[in-house]
């Protein structure tokens, strides 16, 4: 999904750069409400984890691969504003050190994988947690669907940018169908990895999953009334 330099014209890249910068500025303000003593150390680790797992391209159909974006997973773990910051750091490191994703395309990639993937993934997650039962299965289902939809959403956002500022003159409908189709498949991998990771963290320390706050209220009460130390595993 990392957009290289050259796909989009300069005005479009500048516009996504401005959009990305504005989003990061908002995230810097929004994230301090999300970061507490428990989640702050976890945020850096989550970013490093996303960087690592993004290296693991998995095969998708014939001759194609995909990798985790991690926007939805990160938002559920540490909160959406912090997720924007984490994704931005990952994309910055990839673009500057590893030449993965263009430098002039950095704003585009932050827009697609920071803003859109986090926004859609977390938005769907919140909508679904509002209607699903407040159980682990409910939280994991909501996160899985959010993660799944975040991938085609990012792909279609790219198509939107390509419609405005794509350098090549190719039929837009074909680009939309090809990008949307392949990223529906990649979204299945995104959902599987996100659910597996969240399931593992929820099994050990549900209190560290920010998006599972609804689950931890009763557990917190039980912990407080229990003898000292008994509540911690």
């Amino acid at each position: 999904m990392h957009v290289p330099d050259g796909f989009l014209d300069a005005p479009t890249s500048m516009a996504t750069g401005a959009l990305a910068a504005g989003t990061v500025a908002l995230a810097l303000r929004g994230s301090h409400r999300e970061l507490d003593e428990r989640t702050a150390p976890l945020a850096g680790l989550t970013a490093a984890f996303v960087f690592a797992v993004q290296m693991m391209n998995f095969p998708v159909g014939a001759g194609t691969s995909g990798h985790l974006i991690g926007g939805a997973l990160t938002a559920v773990l540490v909160g959406p504003w912090t997720a924007v910051l984490c994704m931005t750091v990952v994309l910055l490191v990839q673009a500057v050190l590893f030449a993965d994703g263009g430098l002039t395309a950095l704003g585009t990639n932050v827009t697609l994988m920071g803003l859109v993937a986090v926004g859609v993934g977390y938005g769907v997650f919140r909508l679904l947690t509002a209607v699903l039962p407040r159980t682990r299965t409910g939280v994991l289902t909501a996160a899985g669907v959010g993660a799944f939809l975040s991938v085609p959403a990012s792909a279609l956002a790219f198509v939107g940018l390509f419609a405005v500022g794509g350098v090549a003159d190719v039929p837009l409908g074909t680009v939309a169908a090809t990008m949307g189709g392949i990223h529906l498949l990649i979204g299945l991998g995104e959902a599987a990895i996100s659910v597996a990771v969240l399931g593992a963290v929820l099994a050990v320390r549900p209190d560290l999953v920010r998006g599972a706050a609804a689950l931890r209220r009763p557990a917190d009460l039980a912990r407080r009334s229990a003898p000292a130390g008994a509540g911690a595993r």
């Binding site: 330099d5 796909f7 998995f58």
Partner: peptide
């Protein structure tokens, strides 16, 4: 683990080749 990752083009690279705009990619300054 990354050694065992798939080396096939990712979704965007593949779609760019399929639909004919992959040639517009430029080398990153990095």
């Amino acid at each position: 683990g990354s050694w065992y990752a798939s080396g096939s083009p990712d979704g965007l690279e593949w779609a760019a080749e399929e639909t004919g705009f992959s040639h517009t990619a430029e080398d990153s300054a990095a």
